[in-house]
Structures are given as C-alpha cells and as structure tokens.
C-alpha cells in the first residue's frame, strides 16, 4: 500500500472508532500545502503528504479552537515528532493528549501514542542532522570578521516586518505573552527597524536555545526570507557540544537553559 493511502486509512480509522476527534494533516491547494482539519472519516481522502509540507503541525495542539474540537491525531514528520517530545518534556503535553500519525523518512510508521514517539525517534532518527549546505553556510559566516557578520545580519534583519510569523509557526513558542509583548516597559522596540529588529531576532533565537528541534517551520514561515535556521542550528550545535544533548528525544529531559551541572564548562569566565 502506498504511504499516503495508509495515512488516509489510519486517519479514517481513528476518527471512525473515536480514538481521535480531529486529524490535523495537510491538504493540497495548487502548489501550496495548507493544514487540513479532518473531523469525519469520509474526508480523510483529502489528506496529502509530500516534501512541500513544510509546516510543523504540532503547533496546532496549543491552539484553543483546535483543542475545542477534542483529541487530535496529528500528522508528524520526525522533526515535528521531536517537537512533540519537547512539548512533553516541558509539560505542555501529557500521555493521552494526542495521537501521532508518524510519517518517517521514506516510510510510514502508523498511529502512535505520544509515549511511543521518543523510542521511535531514538531507534530510527537519532542521527537527524541539518543539511550540509546549512552547516557550510554557518561555517562560512563564522569564519568572517564580527563586522562582516554584523553587516550580513543587518541586511537580513532590515527586511523583518515584525509580523511574528516565525513565532506563530514554532511549536516551541507557546508563551501566552511573548517577551516582545511585555510593554511595561517595552523591552524590545516594536519598530521594525534597527535595534528592535536585532533584539527581537536574537532573543527569539535565544529563547529556543536547546529547545529548537530543527523543523525549519520558522524559516519557511518568514515572508521576508530571513535565514533564521542559521541562528537556530548554530545554537543547537553549541548546546550539543557543550551539554551533550539534543532537543526532542527525551520526554524526561530537563531544559538546557534552566538546569545546570557543577561541571559545566567555564573557560570563558575569567
């Protein structure tokens, strides 16, 4: 059976036997892929899945209107499954909050309970890594002078309109009030220019340090094409190097920023 047929069949089945009230998947709209919320088994045939599905659907599990529909089964790629594990480790999801229609790389893993996600990731997708092009890009940028890097980012951040699509698209950005919305005082300037854009983009990346699962939804969401994954992946690499951990594999993991070890490296503290 083709992968997509198996996915559709499973979606129809979980809806028919009441294990889930809504299936969150993708639909095709021309070349675009949009989320599809399937609530009846007969509509499961409209689900699609291919490489154009860039959005991380785990983001919808926090949306109040989606929650009102009842328990969800969410179509998730390995990166999105890592997001689910991250949300579990941060007490945002618990055991039976959702089901997962697990789409792997080149294969389909069927309907999983949340508890089954981490073992699958560890077994099959422990070596998920950012693309070599992205890593090369980071290396290239890191080799430049601080002034050159500042100029590179100034050009990128100048495009930012502060629409916060990056934040909206990220399953990890679930604060009900974001730091940029804290306005007494206004910590980060909301003017879409200069210092405000620098502070926003830097702080957004930092708040995901050790939490970003590398799904790339933020960069795909950015209407201005700012290469946000350069920042996220850089921090992911640093966290892995310094603290030997990768976000989204262990539902019991403590947050990297927010926990500590007396043996942590401190050669930069003089």
């Amino acid at each position: 059976m083709e992968m997509i047929d198996a996915l559709r069949a499973d979606a129809a089945k979980v809806l028919a036997d009441g294990r889930a009230k809504v299936v969150i998947g993708y639909q095709a709209r021309g070349d675009h892929r949009a989320p599809l919320f399937v609530t009846t088994a007969d509509r499961a045939a409209s689900l699609v899945y291919d490489d154009a599905c860039k959005q991380n659907l785990a983001v919808y599990l926090r949306k109040p209107e989606v929650k009102l529909l009842g328990k969800a089964a969410v179509v998730a790629s390995p990166a999105a499954m890592r997001s689910l594990v991250l949300l579990m480790s941060e007490s945002q999801l618990t055991g039976d909050d959702a089901l997962v229609l697990a789409v792997g790389v080149g294969e389909y893993h069927g309907v999983l309970e949340l508890a089954q996600v981490a073992p699958l990731l560890k077994e099959k997708y422990a070596a998920l890594a950012p693309s070599p092009e992205l890593l090369r890009e980071i290396e290239k940028l890191a080799a430049k002078t601080p002034e050159e890097r500042a100029a590179f980012w100034a050009k990128q951040f100048a495009k930012c309109t502060r629409c916060y699509a990056c934040r909206a698209a990220c399953p990890g950005c679930y604060c009900t009030r974001c730091i940029v919305e804290k306005n007494v005082p206004q910590w980060i300037s909301t003017a879409a220019a200069g210092h405000g854009n620098y502070a926003w983009n830097v702080i957004r990346a930092f708040h995901l340090a050790g939490r970003c699962t590398g799904c790339g939804a933020c960069e795909a969401a950015c209407p201005q094409g700012i290469p946000l994954m350069l920042l996220n992946v850089l921090l992911g690499q640093e966290v892995e190097k310094e603290f030997e951990t990768k976000a989204g594999y262990d539902p019991e993991a403590k947050p990297v920023i927010g926990s500590w070890n007396p043996e942590d490296e401190e050669d930069f503290i003089k």
Partner: peptide, 29 residues
C-alpha cells in the same frame, strides 16, 4: 550562578555570530 553560566555559554555564541565582537563581552567571578 550555575544557571547564569549555562546561559552565557550559549548567549555569547549568539552575540558573536550576529556580529558582536567578543572583545566586548566579559565574564568573571
């Protein structure tokens, strides 16, 4: 200070990568 140490270990990398010269950020005990 243990919490802070972790935070700075990561944050300084981000500052450096976005163009702040590391000759301008100092940490000490």
């Amino acid at each position: 200070n243990y919490h802070a140490r972790r935070r700075w270990a990561i944050f300084r990398r981000l500052l450096e990568f976005t163009g702040i010269d590391m000759r301008r950020v100092f940490f000490s005990w």
